[in-house]
Amino acid sequence: MSRNAKINALLLLAVAALAVLPLVLGLGDHKEEPFAGADAEAETAITEIEPDYEPWFSPLYEPPSGEIESALFALQAAIGAGVLAYYFGLRRGRRQGEERTAAALRGAPGED
């Protein structure tokens, strides 16, 4: 592994540790519903401050179940990851192609 790749791997490891540590340390144990979404907690806080508040508009489409919702979230991440992977793959391929052409031009013209 090159030095560059090692540094990237360490950075990724740090991100993974930041995500896993709250779970391992049980930081959600004091809550009724551990590791719920902050957005939902904010909704609860709103109804605590203003118990009479009624949302005046509802979503045009709501995923019928948690499974469908997580599928759509996965789809969102997959689209993003796919485009990113395409970008870096294309760049790498182009660079290798250019290097190969340059090497071929430098080398003997008869070499095939």
């Binding site: 809550k31 590791f35 991440a77």
Partner: peptide, 26 residues
Amino acid sequence: LLLGASGAFTFVLSALKLPSVTGSCS
């Protein structure tokens, strides 16, 4: 292409709900 990659990065990261020290996810 790079514009697409920047948009894609936002797409991925805003779909990643991660646990945090407060015991909730964001």
